[in-house]
Each structure stands twice: as structure tokens, then as C-alpha cells.
């Protein structure tokens, strides 16, 4: 680990000013950042703790919720409002990591956690995300926890979050404060960036931008399912996961929002899939077709080919459960 400065401001202004200095990085629970600092995959000169800024509350906002950036994953999962109205989020959180990690991990930190690609974590391997232009050792290497959608010839790294998958299906918005104090909000749909030829740029945040909260609009569907497939019963990242938020009207799907983990370079959602489900009567063939549309153009490697049939099976299962 490289030596670094550490500050723990207690007001937003101080935090943003500190966060805007050269080489500064915010830290929430530190469960991802510290690991990467130990490996020197990340080496910030200045670490700014954002957990004393009063951003740890979950507040009602109209029919929706405003979730502070530093609300712990465990607290968010246990919140009665979340459990009642956004069960897909609660389930996704509880399917992630371990009890100890969820006690520390924060909402913003979870959204911004880095990929688990082993070549990204290994400084002796080439990685365009770590060192732009260095090449990608994952291509042609041991590939399993990698993406099949959104990839480029420069990067096939997967976004590993469970929470963010559920949030995508819930149409979450991110509240951001810039270093000058300006506030703006972004749909989660437009928050992440595909790797293309700049895999080191992962989101639309600018230097010094601080996430202050995540907004959930009123739930658009009451039928919510999260299903995660993994190598062991707990404490493993998703091979594939599916979050579905549906509303039924007169036997037809009136609202469909389906998001996917384990397959995309970002928490994945495909508007085409949602659109083809909306207004339709549930059927095997409809759900099969949705699965086909989803993986159009999938970029599979030796080790990730199984994800195509797997995500299709899980999607179908989740949809049937949701409409049942």
C-alpha cells in the first residue's frame, strides 16, 4: 500500500473540496477500495472519508425513497419500507457478499465497486482498465466471471454488483454534488459507461463528484423477484442474476423492467426486452423470445458460453414467478 493522506470531513463542502484535490478518492465502507489499495491496483494520494456527512438516512420522498449515499447495505436491506415496497432491492442486497461486508458497505460504494476480473486485480497482468493502452490479459485467459454483453475488444470486465441490478429495474436516479456545490441527478440507465476504447472510465462522474443519494421513484410494479445463480450457496458473486419488476393488468403484463447481473459490463438492462414483454400475455414463447433478444450479439468466450443458456433459463423462471 502506498502512503496516503486521510481526512474525515464532517460537512459536504469540506468533503467536496478535499475530494477535488489531485489524486483524491472518496471512501465509504472501504470494503472494495482498501483491498485494491493493498494490491496497489488503486493508489490514491488522498483518501476522503464520506461516512460523517449525515448521508446515512433513508427518507420518504413523495411516493418514493431517498437513500443516503452512506447508508449501509445491511441497513438498506432491513429497512421496512424497502422490504415492503422494493423487495427486489432487499433480496438483491442480501444475496450479495457476507453479513460482515454488508455491515460496512455503503450504497454509493456498492454502485462504484470495481470489477472482480482477476487480471484487473493482478498488477503483473495487462489491463486496459488499470493502465489505458496496456492490453487485456483476460482475452484468451481464464474467463468465467466476465461479461458477455457490453464488451469491447479492449475489455470484457463484468460489473459485479447485485444491488445495482435491482436498482436498475427500479429506475433509480443518482444524486450528485459537484466540487462547486452544484447538484445534478442522473438516471442509473445513463450512469455507467460501456468500456469501448476507454474501459478505465466507468461512469459519468467527473473528478470530485460526490454521490449524495440514490432516489427510488414509487415502485412501478408490485411483482418483484431477484434470483441469483452462484458457485456456492453464499459469499460468491453472481454467475447470472435477474431482477424483475412487473405489474399485471387483466392477465397482461402492464409494466416490465428486467435487469441482469453477471452478464454485462454494467448492471444490464435492455429496453427492447422490457418493451416486448409490456402489453403481452405471458407465455413460454414470449419469454423464450425475450431471452433470445437479450443475448443478441453476445460476445462469448470459452469460459462464459454457459451464461447464454443460463441467463435465458433464469429469465424465464423469474418471469413466470413474477406473473404467477
Amino acid at each position: 500500500m502506498r502512503p496516503f493522506d486521510f481526512t474525515r470531513p464532517d460537512d459536504l463542502e469540506g468533503a467536496c473540496a478535499a475530494g477535488f484535490t489531485e489524486g483524491a478518492t472518496f471512501i465509504g465502507g472501504g470494503t472494495n477500495l482498501i483491498d485494491l489499495m493493498k494490491l496497489e491496483v488503486m493508489a490514491p494520494a488522498h483518501v476522503v472519508d464520506v461516512t460523517r456527512l449525515g448521508l446515512d438516512r433513508i427518507e420518504d420522498e413523495g411516493d418514493g425513497l431517498n437513500i443516503g449515499a452512506t447508508v449501509r447495505n445491511a441497513d438498506l436491506a432491513a429497512d421496512p419500507r424497502v422490504r415492503r415496497r422494493y423487495p427486489v432491492l432487499s433480496r438483491a442486497l442480501l444475496a450479495g457478499a457476507s453479513g460482515q461486508l454488508r455491515n460496512r458497505a455503503t450504497t454509493a460504494g456498492n454502485l462504484l465497486q470495481r470489477t472482480r476480473c482477476p487480471y484487473f486485480q493482478d498488477r503483473d497482468s495487462a489491463c486496459n482498465k488499470r493502465t489505458p493502452g496496456a492490453g487485456c490479459a483476460a482475452l484468451g485467459g481464464e474467463v468465467r466471471n466476465h461479461a458477455i454483453l457490453g464488451t469491447s475488444e479492449h475489455c470484457i470486465a463484468l460489473h459485479p454488483s447485485d444491488m445495482a441490478v435491482a436498482m436498475r429495474a427500479l429506475d433509480a436516479e443518482i444524486e450528485v454534488r459537484d466540487p462547486e456545490g452544484g447538484m445534478r441527478s442522473m438516471d442509473l440507465d445513463h450512469f455507467y459507461r460501456l468500456p469501448r476504447d476507454t474501459p478505465h472510465i466507468e461512469t459519468r462522474l467527473e473528478p470530485g463528484d460526490l454521490i449524495t443519494s440514490v432516489r427510488l421513484p414509487a415502485p412501478k410494479g408490485d411483482r418483484q423477484i431477484y434470483r441469483k445463480v452462484r458457485d456456492r450457496a453464499s459469499y460468491a458473486f453472481a454467475l447470472v442474476s435477474v431482477a424483475a419488476v412487473l405489474r399485471m393488468e387483466g392477465g397482461k403484463i402492464a409494466h416490465a423492467a428486467v435487469a441482469f447481473g453477471g452478464i454485462g459490463t454494467e448492471p444490464w438492462r435492455d429496453i427492447e426486452v422490457d418493451a416486448m414483454l409490456t402489453g403481452e400475455t405471458p407465455s413460454d414463447s414470449l419469454f423464450d423470445k425475450a431471452g433470445e433478444v437479450l443475448v443478441q450479439g453476445a460476445d462469448v468466450q470459452d469460459g462464459t458460453a454457459f451464461k447464454v443458456p443460463l441467463v435465458q433459463r433464469v429469465l424465464k423462471d423469474v418471469l413466470w414467478r413474477a406473473v404467477a
Binding site: Y119, R232, F237
Partner: peptide, 13 residues
């Protein structure tokens, strides 16, 4: 490649 306990999957409880 998988040189840690997150990715070398021992059974958990």
C-alpha cells in the same frame, strides 16, 4: 489466476 479466498471457492457455512 484465483489467488484469494473470494475466488478460490471453499464451501461456506
Amino acid at each position: 489466476v484465483n489467488r484469494d479466498l473470494a475466488e478460490y471457492h471453499l464451501p461456506v457455512h
